[in-house]
Design a protein around this nucleic acid. Structure first.
Length: 434
RNA sequence: GCGGCAUUAGCUCAGUCGGUAGAGCACUGGAUUGUGAUUCCAGGUGUCACCGGUUCGAUCCCGGUAUGUCGCCCCA
């Protein structure tokens, strides 16, 4: 067993039961995105490595130790499996001049790769739904994107996802705060733990996140970013909050909310849950006004967010979400050579009529075919034996509560008969539920 | 990347104080010639994750590896 090749660690297979669940999730997500006017875009999974080092930031964890980077052995080009979607999306928008005429609302859905230690809700290959609004200065689009999230949770029947909000200000404001922060911690270096010392020059903002009780006092006295923000930044932040309040959406301002990617500015937000253990963030994003210019495009504001599909699906399961197992409409059972040949014609005819049909393949006794028909979840078995084949008819047997007993039906009336019975059955079910 | 815990039939798990193992569910076949789901009968050698060590003998003890899981780091 272990001699066989296994899936790469942290890159699990998604088997049919699970994959059907994913498709339902994706249907909901696509309908939700259409509701806000977002259009799909599909980028490659592999991009030139410099795209990510420039966009995400050289000293971030992602770039330093989590990227699947390799050299294309055929031409020596440095390539990387995308660890996130925004960089590639922005690259595509610049390359094809997408925002030359109009701002763009875009989304994508697909695999991302980060070499982290896997556990539940965190994988080396994982999936994100990314939503990007390019060319919008906000704060209206910021708030819209946040409100979108709330609607999706409702569409998915999820509760207990809370919104955390912060502002990072503009790069110059952040830079002054950062410089003062470093000075502040340098003066108190003996009070810092190893972790904090390591981050002092690479990521001093993260020191503020430390859970070390011994450092809390030092952290509390540190310079606060909000004191470095200019009027425009403060106004942008309060405008976002105003819209959220108007919409009645509760949120928590978390001054320690810092994104792991360098390109963010002004509004940042996270949707978090306490039901998934250590991986509580199911959706996160913010504004990145500098990125398009930084990647060589004409400077334009932008805002976006990404959701972790595995985490959201885990949360749906946690909340008792189970998709209604929907079987096929018809299972065709047949015995005898003439019947087998007719079965193909009948099955194709049913599909012409819009009826989902499984044709029994692989032989087996009548009994075993009927068992398979039942197991398939089909509403009807269509039975063809020598009698039926000779008469140009089939036996139609209801397997659930649809229709009223087994009967013979001419082949040319079969699709219509089944469709009518299915519709009646559907009506009955709806009436019962009401 | 660091630390803890786990790994027995397709699934969920029990078990052997070291003498190579079981249940439920699922699955397959059958209960008079062409009728499922209910009922009855029958059907499991699964390298007890892998490799090595201790032992007369290991699935059970020890070490390593792999994978999962929990926490840390970080993040979706």
């Amino acid at each position: 067993m272990s001699n066989n090749i296994q899936a790469v660690r942290g890159m699990p297979d998604i088997l049919p039961d699970e994959a059907e669940f994913w498709e339902l999730f994706e249907d909901t997500v696509r309908a939700w995105l259409r509701g806000y006017g977002y259009r799909p875009i599909r980028m490659p999974i592999v991009e030139p490595t410099p795209l990510f080092t420039r966009a995400i930031g050289e000293v971030t964890d992602i770039v330093e130790k989590e990227m699947y980077s390799f050299v294309d052995s055929l031409n020596g080009e440095p390539l990387t499996l995308r660890p996130e979607g925004t960089a590639g999306c922005v690259r595509a928008a610049i390359q094809h001049n997408l925002t030359a005429q109009q701002p763009q609302r875009l989304y994508y859905l697909g695999q991302m790769f980060r070499h982290e230690r896997p556990q539940k809700g965190r994988y080396r290959q994982f999936h994100q739904v990314g939503v990007e609004a390019l060319g919008f200065a906000g704060p209206d689009i910021d708030a819209e994107m946040i409100l979108m999230g709330a609607r999706l949770w409702a569409d998915l029947g999820l509760e207990g996802i809370e919104l955390q909000l912060n502002t990072l200000g503009q790069p110059d404001e952040r830079a002054r705060h950062r410089a003062d922060l470093i000075v502040y911690f340098e003066e108190r270096k003996d009070l810092l733990d190893e972790d904090a010392k390591r981050r002092l020059y690479s990521n001093p903002l993260r020191i503020l996140d430390s859970k070390n009780p011994a450092m809390q006092e030092t952290i509390a006295g540190a310079p606060k970013l909000i004191d470095y923000l200019g009027e425009a930044s403060l106004e942008h932040f309060s405008a976002v909050q105003r819209i959220l309040k108007d919409a009645g959406l509760p949120f928590t301002i978390n001054p320690r909310l810092v994104r792991g990617l360098d390109y963010y500015n002004l509004t940042v937000f996270e949707w978090v849950t306490d039901r998934l253990g250590a991986q509580g963030t199911v959706c996160a994003g913010g504004r990145y006004d500098g990125l398009i210019g930084q990647l060589g495009g004409k400077a334009q504001p932008a805002c976006g967010f990404a959701m972790g599909v595995e985490r959201l699906i885990a949360l749906i399961r946690e909340s008792g979400g189970e998709p209604a197992k929907r079987g096929t409409d018809v299972y065709v059972v047949h015995a005898g050579e003439a019947a087998a040949r007719m079965a193909f014609r009948v099955a194709e005819g049913l599909r012409d009529g819009g009826i989902d049909t499984i044709l029994h393949c692989g032989g087996g006794s009548f009994k075993s075919q009927m068992k398979k028909a039942d197991g398939s979840g089909a509403a009807f078995a269509v039975i063809i034996g020598d009698d039926e084949a000779a008469a140009g008819e089939v036996s139609l047997k209801p397997l659930r509560e649809a229709g009223d007993g087994q009967k013979r039906v001419p082949v040319d009336q079969l699709a219509e008969t089944i469709m009518d019975a299915l519709l009646d059955w559907q009506d009955e079910n709806e009436r019962e539920e009401a």
